[in-house]
C-alpha cells in the first residue's frame, strides 16, 4: 500500500514536472499523402489537449520521404512520417529511428497505392519492358512496389525500364500526355484519374507484393530518451485525432481541404470517404509482423542492403493507452 502511494506520488511529480515545464518543440515532417492525422494535429489543435502545454507542434511539409530524411539527418526534425519500407531502408543505412505510431496501411479504407496506365496502353503488370515509370521519389515505398512488378517479370530495373521522378500532382498529366507509361497514384490521385477516365489499374502495391505496407510516424531515439513523457503526450493526442478521423471523416477532410495544406479539390476529396470505416491500424500501434514481412521482401529484392533488428525499431509502449 505504501509502495503504491509512493509510486503514485512519484508519477504525479513527474507529470507535474512535465506539465509545468516549458512545452518542448516537436519538429515533425509530413508529406502530401496518407498523413491526415499529422495534418489534423496542426489544423485542429482543439483535438490535441497536450499541444501547447506539454509540446509545441511544429509540422513542416515535404514533397517526399527522402527530403524528410535529409532534414532529419541534418538535425532539423525530431520526427516524421514514413512508409515502413522507407524506414527499413533508412535503418539499414544506420539512420537511428524508432517507430512510435501507425497512421494507416495500404489497401485500407484510408489509403491505397495504385499503379495506373492509360486504358489503351500495351503496358500492364505482365508487360513492363521498356516502360517509363513515373514516381515521386527514389527509395520510397512507391519505387519498391514498382520494382517488385518489374522484377517479377524477370526484368532488370536498372536497364529494362526508365524511372522518372516528379511531384505526385504531375504524374497524372504526364501519363495522359504520354510522357510516362505507368505512374504511381496514391488514393486521392488514383480517385481523380479513375473518375476522369481513360486509365486502368495495372496493379496495386498490395496486389503485386502480397505484403501490407504500413505508414508510421517515427521519432529520433535520442529525442525519445530525453523527452519520453512528451512523446507519450503527443501519442495520446495522436490517438485522439485518429479516433476523430475515424468517426468524423467528412468534417476532417473538409478541414484539410479548406486549409490548402495539400492541394486537393474539396469536391473530390470529400467523395473519397468510404461508407464504413474499419479500425485502420490496430489503435495506432505499429505492427512488428508487418515490419518483418516487409523486410523479407525488401531484402530479397535487393532494395534493402542488409537486415536490421526490427524488434528494436518499434516502441509501441508510447502509443498504448
Amino acid at each position: 500500500m505504501f509502495k503504491n502511494l509512493l509510486l503514485s506520488a512519484a508519477t504525479m511529480f513527474a507529470m507535474a514536472g512535465v506539465a509545468y515545464a516549458d512545452p518542448v518543440d516537436i519538429r515533425i515532417g509530413a508529406g502530401p499523402s496518407a498523413d491526415e492525422q499529422l495534418w489534423l494535429m496542426k489544423l485542429r489543435p482543439d483535438l490535441t489537449p497536450n499541444q501547447g502545454k506539454v509540446y509545441n507542434y511544429k509540422m513542416t511539409m515535404f514533397r517526399g520521404a527522402n527530403e524528410r530524411f535529409v532534414a532529419y539527418q541534418a538535425g532539423q526534425l525530431d520526427a516524421g512520417s514514413t512508409a515502413m519500407s522507407a524506414a527499413l531502408f533508412a535503418a539499414s543505412k544506420d539512420i537511428p529511428l524508432t517507430l512510435v505510431a501507425a497512421e494507416t496501411y495500404d489497401e485500407s479504407d484510408f489509403f491505397s497505392t495504385d499503379y495506373l496506365t492509360l486504358a489503351d496502353s500495351k503496358f500492364s503488370k505482365d508487360n513492363l519492358k521498356g516502360a517509363t515509370i513515373g514516381l515521386s521519389g527514389f527509395r520510397t515505398s512507391f519505387e519498391l512496389y514498382a520494382r517488385v512488378a518489374v522484377q517479377k517479370l524477370g526484368l532488370n530495373p536498372e536497364r529494362d525500364v526508365n524511372w522518372l521522378i516528379m511531384p505526385l500532382g504531375n504524374i497524372g498529366m504526364a501519363l495522359r500526355a504520354g510522357k510516362i507509361d505507368l505512374g504511381v497514384f496514391p488514393t486521392f490521385y488514383s480517385y481523380v484519374e479513375n473518375k476522369t477516365g481513360g486509365v486502368k489499374t495495372a496493379f496495386t502495391a498490395f496486389s503485386i507484393s502480397g505484403v501490407r505496407e504500413e505508414f508510421d510516424v517515427f521519432f529520433s531515439p535520442d529525442f525519445i530518451a530525453k523527452n519520453r513523457e512528451v512523446v507519450r503526450a503527443w501519442a495520446s493526442d495522436f490517438r485522439n485525432v485518429s479516433n476523430y478521423l475515424n468517426q468524423h471523416q467528412k468534417e476532417a477532410r473538409q478541414a484539410i481541404a479548406d486549409s490548402k495544406i495539400i492541394e486537393v479539390d474539396p469536391a473530390v476529396y470529400l467523395q473519397i470517404i468510404p461508407p464504413e470505416i474499419k479500425n485502420p491500424t490496430q489503435n495506432g500501434i505499429p505492427q512488428i509482423e508487418t515490419l518483418r514481412k516487409l523486410q523479407d521482401l525488401t531484402v530479397s529484392l535487393g532494395f534493402q542492403p542488409k537486415k536490421v533488428d526490427v524488434d528494436k525499431m518499434i516502441d509501441a509502449s508510447l502509443i498504448k493507452p
Binding site: N66, F69, V70, G137, F138, R139, W163, L164, I165, M166
Partner: peptide, 20 residues
C-alpha cells in the same frame, strides 16, 4: 536530377536518395 535515370545528375540524386 529533376527526372532521369541516366547521367551524372541521376547518380547525384539517386545516391543521395540512398543516403550514400
Amino acid at each position: 536530377i529533376i527526372g532521369e535515370s541516366k547521367g551524372l545528375g541521376y547518380i547525384v540524386s539517386f545516391s543521395a536518395a540512398q543516403f550514400e
